[in-house]
């Protein structure tokens, strides 16, 4: 049973006469206890997706259609009060530099227990402190962090605090938006390992947004590849990254430098650049940059087709035959 299921989600930004379709009828499912990595470059709509589910997009200039069910509740049309409750208790978000949002003149512990006591006003200060220290321990931070100020922490410690904060009310869904991108490799690997261990322990479902395929490769069960607001390919990580069906996924993998032991394969880029989303190409969204594109690709947008269990790709040419 899917914990989060997104149905035909579209987001359009209006500015003057331009209408930018940042997300184009997206369908996604995440099962309970699983982990999904969403891979995309800048302009792929991955951040828009998160903002849409969390309902953080500005009203007025943005048009959202479609549905997103979290645990059976529809998020897009949910009332504001219910949404606020859900945001911490059912789903929590960790940004790339979440801690920048925290006030620099308050101690970490004070900031954290304030948040705790907003949601649970009945809890005493002492109990709040105990809970915070418990959370800090969970993410392998010493309890002295409670009495430190945000600027006294290193980047890695900051992100650990952010993760501890997000786990405060035992959310079912944890969303990490480039949460480890700014960290050093050694710290990144360590934090990722800790997250994986934590979610097993606490039974958390994780959705991870990143541009770094290696993060997905090492930590996610499933992967979804986004490009220009469209879902191009999805499936088990071990299938998609090893035998990609879509030319875009293939190109992405080729452009990633491999740290192999002996060979020096030349790196290849995907030529061209992102299409103008206010006037997308009539056919496949990737067609202008695709090396395999044929006439059909220029005419019609391929639909997501199933190739084996849970494996989908949106390409006319995938699987060696022409699909309509």
């Amino acid at each position: 049973m899917a914990l989060l299921s997104i149905r035909d989600l579209s987001v359009t930004y209006h500015s003057g006469t331009r209408h930018v379709k940042a997300l184009n009828s997206l369908n996604l499912d995440i099962n309970e206890g699983e982990s999904l990595g969403i891979v995309g470059e800048s302009g792929s709509g991955k951040t828009t997706l998160i903002m849409a589910i969390l309902r953080l997009l500005p009203k007025g200039s943005v048009e959202i259609s479609g549905e997103a069910f979290l645990n059976g509740k529809e998020l897009i049309s949910l009332k504001q009060e219910e949404l606020l409750k859900m945001r911490w208790e059912e789903m929590a978000l960790v940004f790339q530099k979440s801690m920048n949002a925290l006030s620099p003149v308050h101690k970490i512990g004070v900031l954290m227990s304030d948040i705790y006591r907003i949601h649970k006003p009945e809890v005493s200060k002492r109990d709040a402190r105990r809970r915070i220290e418990e959370l800090l321990e969970l993410v392998n931070l010493p309890s002295r962090v409670y009495d430190l100020y945000p600027h006294e922490l290193s980047g890695g410690m900051m992100q650990r605090v952010s993760i501890a904060l997000s786990l405060m009310f035992n959310p079912k869904l944890l969303i990490l938006d480039e949460a480890t991108t700014a960290l050093d490799v050694v710290t990144q690997t360590q934090i990722l390992e800790e997250i994986v261990a934590l979610e097993k322990k606490l039974g958390i479902t994780r959705m991870m947004i990143t541009h770094d395929m290696s993060v997905v490769a090492s930590t996610c069960k499933n992967v979804a590849v986004l490009y220009a607001g469209c879902l191009l390919e999805t499936g088990l990580t071990q299938d998609v990254l090893v035998e990609p069906l879509h030319p875009y996924t293939q190109g992405l993998i080729k452009s990633f430098p491999v740290f192999d032991n002996d060979t020096h394969q030349p790196l290849q880029s995907i030529g061209g650049s992102l299409p103008d989303l206010s006037s997308p190409p009539p056919g496949c969204i990737f067609e202008p940059r695709c090396i395999k594109a044929c006439d059909m690709c220029r005419e019609s947008m391929p639909r997501l087709k199933e190739y084996g269990q849970g494996r989908f790709a949106a390409c006319h040419l995938a699987g060696g035959e022409i699909n309509v």
Binding site: V185, T189, Q190, M213, A217
Partner: peptide
């Protein structure tokens, strides 16, 4: 050694055992 063992791969099959470094950078 630690840096290289932490170097990420995009092949989910590759099993690497990253060397852990205690403490903060």
């Amino acid at each position: 050694k630690a840096l290289i063992s932490n170097c990420a791969s995009i092949d989910p099959r590759s099993k690497h055992n990253p060397v852990k470094l205690p403490g903060e950078p």
